[in-house]
């Protein structure tokens, strides 16, 4: 963020470096139940991002001192593969991925009905196989689909999107170049039915007006992304039966 460069991120026509208009999303594809051993799983391809999310549980929380007598513990682990970025990422948890794991856990915990499973733990593994900006939000969006397909009771799905400031313009869903050389990045995740915000972070700076414009853009995009999540879950059951049927 904020790295100075002379790359022109927005051209004279107002189009972005990858040819998108300011309020255009990158293509998103979600597939559910990609892993047999997990209770629920999802693969998301969001622009250049390729992320797999796997859900295990609820199961008894171990070690025992981690158990909560009132509710289940939601433990998400965001992990970037060594080969997911241009330059090899040193494997293992680091400050960034631990922070992202924490905010994703908290976002999902507000959607999952944790009070139904005292002493239990719900594990969510988010593996970033290819990163291209906006991985925390893409990972969370996939994780919400995986949790739903695991049959865990939820108040709502969780849907996220980013907005940012690039060359002085507010744009939706930053790509890698815009993220690296732009002025601000604002990932937001909400419960789409109620519009409650469950994750919001900001890197860089924006004025209040720009912030309002960015959040407005995200809220509009959430509806489209939520529809993709819903279709991904439903398709499995509506098409798979069509083949066997007649």
């Amino acid at each position: 963020m904020g790295t100075v460069s002379d790359i022109k991120l927005i051209d004279e026509k107002g189009l972005r470096i990858d040819g998108r208009s300011p309020e255009e999303l990158r293509p998103i594809k979600i597939e559910t139940d990609v892993l047999n051993r997990a209770d629920g799983s999802a693969l998301i391809e969001w622009g250049g991002n390729k992320i797999i999310a796997a859900v295990y549980g609820p199961r008894e929380a171990y070690p025992k001192h981690n158990q909560d007598i009132n509710k289940a513990v939601v433990k998400a682990r965001y992990n970037m593969e060594a080969y997911s970025v241009d330059e090899r990422k040193r494997p293992g948890p680091d400050r960034r991925s631990m922070e992202i794991s924490k905010v994703i856990s908290e976002a999902l915990e507000s959607a999952i009905m944790v009070e139904q499973f005292p002493r239990a733990q719900i594990d969510i593994f988010i593996e970033v196989m290819q990163a291209d900006a906006g991985t925390r939000i893409a990972g969370l969006t996939a994780a919400a689909v995986a949790v739903a397909s695991a049959g865990i009771p939820m108040r709502d799905l969780v849907t996220g999107c980013t907005a940012g400031k690039v060359d002085g313009h507010i744009v939706l869903d930053l790509c890698k170049e815009e993220d690296n050389f732009g002025q601000a990045d604002l990932p937001i995740a909400v419960l789409p039915k109620s519009g409650k915000v469950v994750l919001m972070q900001m890197d860089g700076d924006m004025s209040v007006e720009e912030f309002d414009q960015a959040t407005g853009m995200v809220m509009n995009a959430i509806k489209r992304i939520n529809q993709i999540q819903r279709d991904a879950l439903k398709n499995k059951f509506e098409t798979s039966t069509g083949e066997v049927g007649e």
Partner: peptide, 14 residues
Amino acid sequence: MMKVREIVLPGDQI
């Protein structure tokens, strides 16, 4: 096509 019951998702109002 087989007949499928109505599918709902978390948060859908019933």
